[in-house]
Design a protein around this nucleic acid. Structure first.
Lengths: 242, 242
DNA sequence: CGAGGGTTTGATGATAGTCAAAGTGAGTGG
DNA sequence: CCACTCACTTTGACTATCATCAAACCCTCG
């Protein structure tokens, strides 16, 4: 038995905008099933025209692009509530690949139904555009990080970014959250080498600012970390949930 | 007398999707005027809630973010046909600033009318989302460049990227195009220092691959530049024009 | 016990940053 | 018409951040 949209465990999180019963019903009609995948499973392939779109319900993953020389850029991390495949839905082709890092549960939507869903309700169409704008916003920040921040500052930024997200999802407790990625993933996200990333992490650990081991991230000194990250305060704006 | 949307000089460019008479009329109703600005004029401010949205009709500009330490990341360059202020239109706040580099002519839209425009026609709503998806696509590529490419490769990539765009706009001739930016702008876009950017440019010049001086960019050896840039072939997908 | 994926550490060097100064050209005012 | 300024580009010298290479270490798993 798959989760009913009206009973979606994410719906009540403060991170997301409220969803009316009617909206939940609309989403329900759009939803074609649920998918559970093991760690490491590819969900979308760069350049492909995915027939399915997803919303992450549980678990985490990554989006990434690969270059002809084999290097990989992690575009961002996927957390519960993220919509996957917007680009395929709109432009017909993915510009990056998506892969599950942990075991994941995904709500499956049919690409063919996407346009109907989009046109079925102006509010929902607006929500989808909102999601795209949020993503653009995030990518601008990520670009700024990779382009302008030092390694230490970048790592601090990334840690706070994921911490905020997890906190808003209620997955964090005591300045501590699950963070099941590999150091290589973080390195590829920040444009750093694995070795340098590792050494930077150990600096932050020694400085008692943050500790990450065994898939658990611990923010030890929020304020100093935020200063190092040059984090701009911005209130968590609730986002739409599809 | 301002330009009528139905007579928009951009409408006929192959870069853009065809626009029906009816769509032109709808856009016309949404359009509240035209604005001509001098080089260096700020158009949008990061964090502000812009009351106006624009489409660049003529001229070029840049989008950028600034960090507390004063460093600047150029998010992308603005060419004719680009829609400015989508984020403000959707989320109510800009995540970056926008500035005119050359003299620019802009179609002005009223933010308050934006939602009406969006809901007035599903096709137009879809177009706006398309634009956001295109931007996301571009930012992913830019992030990959800054994170994974070497300085030489980055510069080559940037040159080809703008060349393709200008070519599609009919602004290029003989592998040559206007490129009125400063080296500092390019440096800030690629996360490089000004000095290193300058030296990289002179390498590409010496290697007879590309020459950029006096606001004119010249692609001397397209193939070698493309190889250096690790440019993936991708056909120019026509984009919507608002 | 060995294999394999991931993390950690050390050594070395290249790419790219910083600092400084000179060069160029357009624009301004005496 | 000639300084003079100002913004931008170019060049050289020096430095540091970060990449690469290599090897050891740690765990889990078969």
């Amino acid at each position: 038995m798959t989760t009913q949209c009206k009973d979606c465990p994410l719906r009540t999180k403060p991170l997301f905008q409220g969803m009316s019963e009617e909206e939940a019903q609309q989403t329900q009609r759009f939803k074609s099933g649920e998918l559970v995948v093991d760690p490491g499973t590819p969900l979308m392939l760069e350049g492909s025209n995915a027939p399915q779109l997803y919303t992450a319900l549980r678990g985490m993953g990554i989006r990434y692009k690969t270059l002809p020389n084999g290097r990989r850029q992690v575009i961002n991390l996927i957390f519960p509530g993220d919509f996957i495949g917007l680009q395929a839905g709109i432009m017909g082709e993915m510009s990056h690949s998506v892969e599950a890092t942990t075991k994941m549960t995904l709500c499956v939507f049919d690409r063919k139904a996407f346009f109907n869903f989009f046109r079925s309700n102006t509010e929902r169409a607006f929500d989808i555009t909102w999601l795209a704008a949020v993503e653009e916003h995030f990518l601008g920040e990520a670009l700024t990080t990779v382009g302008q921040r030092s390694a230490e500052s970048s790592v601090a930024w990334a840690m706070l970014k994921v911490y905020h997200r997890c906190d808003a999802l209620g997955l964090a407790q005591d300045r501590s959250m699950p963070f099941p990625f590999r150091q290589q993933d973080l390195a590829d996200a920040l444009g750093l080498s694995l070795v340098h990333t590792n050494k930077t992490l150990s600096k932050l650990r020694d400085a008692q600012m943050a500790r990450w081991s065994d898939g658990e991230l611990n923010i030890l000194n929020y304020d100093r970390l935020a200063e190092l990250a040059m984090m701009q305060e911005e209130e968590a704006r609730p986002r739409p949930l599809i």
